[in-house]
Structure formats: C-alpha cells, structure tokens
Design a protein around this nucleic acid. Structure first.
Lengths: 193, 193
DNA sequence: GACAAGAACGAACGATCGTACTATTTTGTG
DNA sequence: CACAAAATAGTACGATCGTTCGTTCTTGTC
C-alpha cells in the first residue's frame, strides 16, 4: 500500500464517520481536512470533486458492510441461523457508526437528488435487498421456510424491521428496543415457517 | 390573517417542500427566498434565525400532519378500521410531499445534531408513537385486538412497516410496494387479533 | 545520492452561507 | 388623507463552500 492509498483510507474512514453523523451531503471538504490534519487542497487532490468523495465514501462503506455484515452471515448455516446472523451483524454495524447506518441516511437524503451519488446508492440498496431475497431462498432450501413464500415480501418485511430499529435506536434511544426488535423478528420468522 | 402571517405561511409551505426534498439542514435562506420571490433579508426577518425557521417548518408540518393524518383517522370507527385509515392517511401524506415524509428524513438527519431542532423533532416523534399506542388501545377496547397485547410493540411494528414503505416508495419506487405493504399490514393486524 | 513521480501545501477564486444593519415601501387605522 | 406600524428590500459583513493553480516537500528507484 503506497502512501497515497494509505492517507486516502484514513480520509474515507473519517468521511464515513462524518457522513454517518451529519449526512453524506454535509460532509465538507474543509471539515474533513481538519479532521484528518490535511490541507483542503491536499485532501481534494485525492478525489478531484466532492461528488467523487461522496461516491468513494459510499463504496468504502459498502466494502466494510460486505466484510462485516454479509460475508460472516454467509458463513453461517443456511436458514434461520443465517438470517439471525445477518440481523445481528447489521445491528452491530449500525451501532458501530456514530450516527447510524450511512445507507439508511443517504437513502432518505438522496431520494430526490438525481446524480451519480444517487445512482451508486440505488445500486447498493438493490444489492442489499437482493441479499435479503437470496437469504430467504436459502432458508427455503434449508427447510426452515415454506416453499411458497414470496422472497421480495420477505426482503421488505425484514428491511422494514431493521429500519424501525434504526430510527428507535438512533433518535429515541429506547432502552427496550432490542427486545421489541427480537419479538418482531420471531413473529416474522414464524410467519414464514 | 395579516399580511405578515400570510407570507410566512407561503414561506413555510415552500420550506416544507424544500425540506422534504433536500433535508431540513439543506433548506437555505437564499434558496427559499428565491422560491418565494422574497429578498433574503425580508424572509429572514420573519424568523430571526435559521434554527427558528427549521423549527417553524417542523411545527407547520406537524399541524398539517395532525389535520391530514391523525384527526381524520380518529373520526373513523375505533379498531382495525381506524388503524387502516391512519395507514392510508400516512401514505397519502408521504406521497403528497415531493421528497417523502419530513419527519422521517429529519429523524435520520438530526439524530446526531443536538439542539433545539432535534428537541422539537424528538417531541414530535414521541407524540406520533404515542398516537400509535393509543390507537392500539382503542382497538383492544373495540374488541378487534386481544387484551394482552403490548402497545409499544404494536407502535414499533406499525411504524417499522411505514418506514419500509417510505424507503421503497421514495428511493426504489417499487411498483409492487403497495401490495407488499398491504400483505405485511394484514399479517401484522392478524397477529394482534 | 541523484532524480523523476507522487503527495501535500498555500493562496486565491467566485459563490453562497447565515446574519446584521439601515432604508424604503406597504399596510391598516384614526 | 395622514401617519405610525408592519413588512420588505438593499447592502454589507465575515465565514465557509467547492475548486484551481503553482509550489514545495516526500517517496521510492536506479
């Protein structure tokens, strides 16, 4: 890893944290430079534009997400154990970020901001939903779910649950939210058995 | 209604629309002035600070929300019909705003921005959740729900469902999302009967 | 150790941010 | 119609925005 790639990673890490707190649009080159002890122009040189910076932050987040949430879940036994692992990892992921999941906040922020950033985000969200779909498929193959279930419906159901958790956890910091999330998950899983 | 109150309303209406699209933090006094054909300073005089503007936009939205979503639902027969009315009204409300529900986007944006805006938002969200809770209580009294249900759990379940709808509808504009939302709602209601 | 390539800096650009003043216009009231 | 009050406009401020450019410092290679 060259020097340039090294500092770029540091910037992306700080940028991800900042985006998680303030939203991807409010990540400022000046503030990010301060946070990383770089000059504005020195930092800028790595990205050529703010739009590129935002996209690279998203892609960096996607890689961490894949490594920390998806891959370990896929190593778990297919079926309900895998689904549970995925949910646990997702909650872990969202808790590690100061301001919650960057994909969730970016999804609301960029739903009406056409452009390359939105395109990348949309692709990532579709991939995520596809992951949820496939995990339901493997649960059918493993015999944990009935055969006639609607995979898209399951993806929607599970993602909704996570979004609810996300709002309660980050805004309302509800003490009982993990319990409620567990209750809802159990009911969800049972309805697909 | 005096002239001042009149233009203030126009500003708040435009501000709400802008906040819905770009997020409350990206509502700019300059842009809002352009959108309403006012001078920056003329507009600013109505609010004294950007923070006040944001708060007044939120409060204006809360009033519209109350009038358009909650009050009409409370006029519907208690129980499942009322819950369905609330959901329908909420979806209507969220569809009318260009960029989706302002409370949802503000909740992710301001979860890590301490200050008066966040305080107002938090209060509003707690009120909303309280509304969901009470509507479940009245469903028990009406005999549509069992007596031993957890009201907070129901509020979480239903709000999660709406949040899922919100993301799919605004970002992914999924053609089948209304059908999936309906399926999930039916399952949710059945589990509380 | 010289030297090209890569990385970071400093200063400056025009634009826009939120806010503060003072003027001017518009409004409602006697 | 007059006149105070309310509403809006105009101008300017320092700060920061994203971006450009030329310069300096740091790398790794021969």
């Amino acid at each position: 890893m060259t020097k340039g790639e090294d500092t770029k990673l540091i910037v992306l890490e700080a940028g991800l944290d900042m985006a998680s707190q303030l939203g991807l649009e409010c990540v400022t080159i000046g503030n990010l430079a301060k946070a990383t002890n770089l000059s504005k122009s020195g930092l800028f040189a790595h990205f050529q534009s703010k739009e590129n910076l935002q996209i690279e932050i998203l892609n960096h987040a996607a890689q961490l997400f894949s490594e920390g949430v998806i891959v370990p879940a896929l190593k778990t036994k297919a079926g309900i154990p895998r689904i549970r692992a995925l949910v646990d990892n997702w909650i872990q992921w969202t808790s590690e970020l100061t301001g919650g999941c960057i994909f969730v906040s970016a999804s609301t922020d960029f739903s009406d901001r056409p452009g390359r950033v939105r395109d990348v985000l949309l692709h990532q969200q579709n991939q995520w939903i596809d992951c949820l779909r496939r995990i339901a498929q493997s649960a059918v193959q493993a015999g944990d779910f009935r055969k006639d279930i609607d995979f898209d419906q399951f993806a929607f159901d599970l993602y909704s649950l996570l979004l609810g958790f996300h709002l309660y956890y980050n805004l309302l910091d509800d003490a009982e939210i993990k319990k409620r999330q567990e209750t809802a998950l159990v009911r969800l899983l049972n309805s697909y058995k």
